[in-house]
Design a binder for these strands. Structure first.
Lengths: 202, 202, 202, 202
DNA sequence: GATGAATGAGTGTTCATTCAT
DNA sequence: TATGAATGAACACTCATTCAT
């Protein structure tokens, strides 16, 4: 996955747009004038840097997800134990769950995002690269757990990865539908998925 | 969850529209004329039954998901063992994974669908009801497993539900990203998530 | 030259547009909304009948020139002598000289009109057909003169056609630049070019 | 007709623009950035010398036509006989016929050019001056013919001018529509119009 | 002087919605 | 009841013009 370099202006446009989406605006109803306003620039300037509205939004999503992965990776690295690292992931989900431009949304969207943003189907801007990155991170996390002696069973790598992705998904599902689990605190939910994780890996 | 009754014409409109989406058309680019054409009726007729394009699409999604749940429920009921029932769920996912109007897409979309179809936020058309239905189904499945003696551990109900949702999610993730798991057959993936399920529930 | 059939609505659009151009509006500054207003219809309706603004204007020009040729032909036919017919042509030029959509403008524009309306370069809408029609008319006029015994010399057909086109052009030049010929009345100009015509053809 | 003096930069802008038009670009689709690129200067520089795009194009046309007249006049002067001079005019038309900025296009466009470039209607930039110049040239040509004894008849000056303009027009018409006169060579066409000229003037 | 990045007014085109038939 | 022709509000995109450097 190569890092595409963007100019300051392009990044400013991305940031304004991402902000808009974070605020809950339906990405499909965003107007070019909204993007311009959010970035505090003229409408025409957008077209000096991008070929179409579609392109701005697509690239902004890619950019945002890339940034988010960097952030998560960095944050995880500050933790010293397998458990702390895993909880750090859950914490991050908790913070970003409402963020429609989050890596999580991308991962769990069942390939849906490409359906909506046809631009993302192009090789150059593919989100497939992110899947790979996430895989690498999960593998590193698992190595950490094995080194620590927390993961002992000789399950296949695939089994382990599926377990991690599964518990992450179910936690985010919980968080998205808290109303159905009013008697379960977030702390309990985290502990529960961690318990599932350990049982599956041992 | 009350069952809303639709007229034949309304259902015809839904079916044409759902068909369109299943064919891969970006729901956001569907025009009223497309819906009319797909349903083989005049454009104006749509407005005799619905108040807006938004409403047609939203209700069609609700309708489609409801139908899908009925189908899955019926199919599961034909199986006699816990394992067969669980595998039936995986089989269904396999068949519907590319279906953007599937219950799975709704469940895992992290609340995304409402972001896109504001209409779905209205109480009357809420998809929350489906979450409840799915919960009930999962509970029934778990009862089945306990009765059969396959689930023995005294984990909390929440733990069990989270496990089931987690493995379903990870399987659908696998299926969506098969390219990253070329050496894993679908059969192996199913066996793997079933193994995770058993380990977590025992 | 086949006659393209247009619907009433299309013709209404043409007429409004032609009217606009006749009023002196620069065709290149005409807006779709102007065309719609002139035809007393909604802007969108234009696009139900034509694919683009360019197409409307191009087809309107073709239509208008075709109609004009029909009119001139009919008017000429009402005259019984060679001289009367020729003067009828001059009279028509006099009336249409300010008309930017006139056949004359097309003929003398040195192929310019296609430069401006790229659409007119397409075979289907070519104005070449008109050149042919005009040729036929000129030939008929010359036959008439010969029958009458007014044209006696055995000049080539090409010589005769060039003469007719030449005097028509010079008369229209005169009429366009009357300011340079303040002492020459239109009657005198007509008589002069008729005299040139006779000298060249005899 | 006074000669307007232009700076080197202004002339460079004119030349680039004229070149563009000669290459067949629709004058109405030329962008300021195109003009700047063609002149190899910055876009802003154009506005240091002209008030608007309209002004650049209008003045460039005026300039170009003026230059062309100078060229023709000079070339004609190199010829010693009436016939040679007249044929020189035809030769020039032959060379410039495809040139949309040519004096010929202006003269025969039935006042059309002003319709398109409103700026040209202003007194200061009027093309009327050119009409006068052309008249003078034609008169000089006619004097030459009389002196030589080739023009003998006592036709009015108006008759003579109309004749010259007529044959020039018909020749340019021939050249523009060569496809309709495939069996007539350019040489024959020239001879034909010269013959018409002589018949009318004698 | 010269530039070109930035602007936003302006316009072609689309399409949800209406309503006469 | 059903239709689809007609509409015009809405919006993506362009490009003449400006102005800070």
């Amino acid at each position: 996955m190569e890092d595409i370099k963007y100019s300051d202006k392009e990044i400013a446009i991305f940031k304004g747009l991402i902000q808009l989406i974070r605020e809950g605006v339906n990405p499909y109803s965003i107007k070019v004038s909204d993007i311009a306003k959010a970035a505090n620039i003229g409408k025409g300037t957008i077209y000096d840097y991008f070929g179409s509205k579609e392109e701005v939004i697509s690239k902004a999503i890619i950019y945002s997800v890339g940034e988010e992965i960097k952030t998560i990776t960095d944050r995880i690295k500050t933790k010293e134990s397998f458990k702390d690292r895993f909880y750090e992931v859950l914490d991050t989900i908790e913070k970003n769950i409402n963020d429609k431009v989050s890596i999580l949304s991308i991962l769990v969207s069942s390939g849906g995002i490409e359906k909506f943003y046809e631009f993302l189907r192009d090789k150059e801007y593919t989100i497939s690269n992110f899947i790979e990155l996430v895989h690498l991170e999960i593998k590193e996390l698992l190595d950490f757990g094995r080194t620590e002696g927390i993961i002992t069973a000789k399950e296949t790598e695939f089994h382990q990865i599926m377990t991690v992705l599964g518990v992450i998904s179910s936690f985010s599902y919980y968080y998205n539908n808290k109303d159905f689990h009013k008697n379960i605190s977030t702390k309990e939910a985290k502990d529960t998925v961690y318990r599932i994780l350990l049982k599956s890996l041992n």
